[in-house]
């Protein structure tokens, strides 16, 4: 890991959370109260990414979800959906009360994203699908001569899927400058550290070699995210590697693969999570 990358990773670890980031995380914790299980660490690492996208970057109309000019956002790491549900509830796509139905019988808020939920563009959960769908949407937008952009958020562990790299080839071949690939590089996957399991080496070099314009940012820094999401590449598709922390905001859950997914979450543990978040 180069010094610059190590520095970004350290900044991600030490980033403080403001009131809004904590409020969104409270929504995530609240979502656990029904089913008492979920991909918590995976949801908490992406909060600032979706916050900035929905607060600042994406063009959308809550009253017209099929507006053709809307920007598309696909959460390819569909298991991190509790983080997406939180911002969708915050923005009014769904109600905050509905969050507590997450993963429960009869709910439309499943343990992975489904496009039947207002604001969700693609059903994901089987990893490695989102970028190809995004390639098609981005190509379609260009063919329709529309100016909307397509954002696809991948997990770092997800990049072991060969289809991701197939899609990268295709995005590059078609010069999809309207396709923005975001990597939630939280460095931990279900079975342990991504560096031990997937051995990707330099992600920047990989994406660059596939013809992408690559940016690296602290994925918990609001200003850095706002700035990088506004960039519009002229020639190549863009990949933004966001250095994040798995379980960000809950000190005892951070960087721990045991919090990738957790079940049998007690009232006591939920209270501990709220306390840890307030103390962060």
């Amino acid at each position: 890991m180069s010094n610059a990358i190590a520095e970004l990773a350290e900044k991600a670890k030490s980033s403080k959370l403001d009131g809004r980031s904590k409020e969104l995380r409270r929504l995530v914790i609240g979502g656990l109260q029904g089913a008492r299980k979920g991909h918590i660490g995976s949801a908490l690492s992406l909060i600032e990414i979706v916050r900035v996208l929905y607060d600042n970057t994406l063009n959308y109309k809550i009253g017209d979800l099929t507006w053709p000019e809307r920007d598309r956002f696909i959460l390819s790491k569909g298991h991190g959906c509790l983080g997406l549900y939180a911002i969708l509830a915050d923005k009014g796509f769904i109600s905050k009360d509905e969050l507590s139905t997450y993963s429960k019988e009869g709910s439309r808020l499943g343990g992975c994203c489904e496009e039947l939920v207002p604001g969700i563009e693609a059903t994901t959960g089987a990893l490695g699908h989102g970028l190809s769908i995004g390639v098609g949407m981005a190509k379609g937008a260009l063919m329709r001569k529309r100016n909307n952009r397509v954002f696809v958020l991948l997990g770092d562990g997800e990049m072991g899927e060969g289809s991701i790299w197939e899609a990268a080839l295709s995005a590059s071949k078609h010069n999809l400058t309207n396709l923005i690939t975001i990597i939630d590089d939280n460095k931990v996957q279900l079975a342990g550290y991504t560096k031990d399991i997937s051995c990707f080496g330099s992600l920047a070099d990989k994406w660059s070699s596939f013809g992408f314009e690559v940016k690296e940012v602290n994925g918990h820094d609001i200003q850095e995210l706002e700035s990088v999401f506004e960039e519009k590449p002229k020639k190549n598709p863009m990949a933004i590697i966001c250095h994040t922390v798995k379980g960000k905001g809950i000190s005892f859950a951070e960087n721990d693969s045991a919090w990738h997914w957790k079940n049998k979450i007690s009232d006591d543990l939920i209270n501990q999570m709220y306390v840890a978040l307030e103390d962060y």
Partner: peptide, 26 residues
Amino acid sequence: QSRYFVEPISEANIAGMATGLAAEGY
């Protein structure tokens, strides 16, 4: 001609990409 693509050997991506195009009405 402008709607005919020969993609890399990448079957899974092609099927997924096609569904993205279908989402755009193609």
